[in-house]
Every structure is written in structure tokens, then in C-alpha cells.
């Protein structure tokens, strides 16, 4: 991984060339399950962006104070705390969506990307740039999940963000609402993404 610590390259790297989902299929556990509706996916991925940004910021500020032995534990504590804050906010202000997301908000804690970025970037960089790194990684993740949700909601319900867009004669594809389709759509998106990258000549 190149350690270019400037905002521009970081953005490009996290959104595209080093996108965590394309390259390693990391961290999809907490979010694939909610990709059958766009609204849920938007809220869920905004939560991930916020938690990642704040976690990286906090870890970067505290890095010189954290004893090596408890580093993982402290990072987990930081992540879990921000996730709880997000969970409480969702419960209070968008109760319907919070209910639909159910346990998946809590599962952001075990999203490997978050701890991965805290370890790989925030531990050795300054606070603001770390926060930027966290947020852009979150956005790269958001981009992929939103594309999945777009396809699944459009074909599964014939709607986008809950608004009917397909003609009435359109027969919804039930499979798109069900779990297996998330895997198919993700696999195809990875395929397309990698094919484009290879054409650009980026190392895959």
C-alpha cells in the first residue's frame, strides 16, 4: 500500500484503486443484509462513514498515549462507543429505519475495514488526514453498497427510494429481495470493477 498522505491521492485510492470491497471483499458482513432497499443502505453506510471518520480521528489523536498491549482493546472500545452513539441517534430520530436495520447497526463494530484502517493509517498519521482517510474509505464502501442496493431495489421492488419507477406491467424479481441475489450482484460488480481497473493498467 502506498503511503501517500495527501488528501487527493487518498481519496482516489480509497474510492477506487484500493477500495476495500473490490480488493479483499472485507467488511461486507454488517451491510449486505440491508442492501435490498436504498433508504436503509444510505442510512447504514452514512453510519459507517461517520464511525470510520471519528474512529480514525480519535485513534490518531490518542496514538502516542495508547500502550501497545491494550491497543486492540482500546480500538474496539472506541469503535463500539461510536457505534452505540450512532445507534442511539438512529433510534431517536429515524425510529422506523432503526427498527429495520435491527442488529446490523451493532454489527458495524465487527466491520473489519474500520479496525483495518485504524491500524494501517491512523496509527501512523496525523489526526485530520486520518479522519479524511476514514471517511473516504467509508465512502468507497458506500459506493459499492449503493450500487448493489440500486440494482436490488429496482429489480426486486420496481422502485427507487420507495418511489415506483418501473411501469406497472413490470414483474418484480422475487430473487432480488432474497439473500442470494446480494452475492450475485456483488460478484458481478467486483467483476466489472476489476475489468475496468485492469484496462486502466492498475495493479489488481
Amino acid at each position: 500500500m502506498s503511503s501517500a498522505a495527501a488528501p487527493g491521492p487518498i481519496l482516489r485510492e480509497n474510492l477506487w484503486t484500493n477500495n476495500p470491497i473490490f480488493m479483499q471483499v472485507l467488511g461486507i458482513c454488517s451491510a449486505l443484509a440491508v442492501t435490498n432497499l436504498l433508504v436503509n443502505t444510505v442510512i447504514m453506510t452514512i453510519a459507517v462513514v461517520a464511525v470510520m471518520g471519528m474512529t480514525n480521528l480519535t485513534v490518531a489523536i490518542m496514538k502516542s498515549l495508547i500502550p501497545r498491549k491494550v491497543r486492540m482493546m482500546v480500538q474496539t472500545l472506541i469503535i463500539a462507543s461510536y457505534v452505540i452513539v450512532v445507534d442511539i441517534i438512529l433510534r431517536a430520530y429515524v425510529p422506523d429505519i432503526s427498527r429495520e436495520l435491527g442488529p446490523y447497526v451493532g454489527l458495524i463494530i465487527t466491520n473489519c475495514i474500520i479496525m483495518g484502517r485504524a491500524e494501517a493509517f491512523a496509527q501512523s498519521n496525523r489526526p485530520l488526514i486520518s479522519m479524511w482517510d476514514g471517511m473516504t474509505s467509508g465512502m468507497g464502501y458506500m459506493g459499492v453498497l449503493l450500487s448493489i442496493a440500486l440494482i436490488r431495489e429496482l429489480l426486486g421492488f420496481g422502485s427507487l427510494f420507495g418511489y415506483q419507477v418501473m411501469p406497472a406491467a413490470f414483474e418484480p424479481w422475487i430473487i432480488m429481495v432474497m439473500p442470494p441475489s446480494a452475492f450475485f450482484v456483488l460478484g458481478i460488480i467486483i467483476w466489472i470493477g476489476k475489468a475496468i481497473m485492469e484496462r486502466e493498467g492498475a495493479p489488481a
Partner: peptide, 23 residues
């Protein structure tokens, strides 16, 4: 397997087929 689909891509699609079988 097509080159761009190798590795994670084809694995994820395989999991999709397994998920369908389990349903």
C-alpha cells in the same frame, strides 16, 4: 474463469449459488 472474475469475484458468486441451494 475470466481473469477479472478470479479470486473474490467468483467466490462471491459461488456463495450466491450456495445460498440459493440452502433456501
Amino acid at each position: 474463469v475470466p481473469a477479472a472474475l478470479k479470486g473474490p469475484g467468483i467466490t462471491v458468486i459461488t456463495i450466491g449459488f450456495m445460498a440459493m441451494a440452502f433456501i
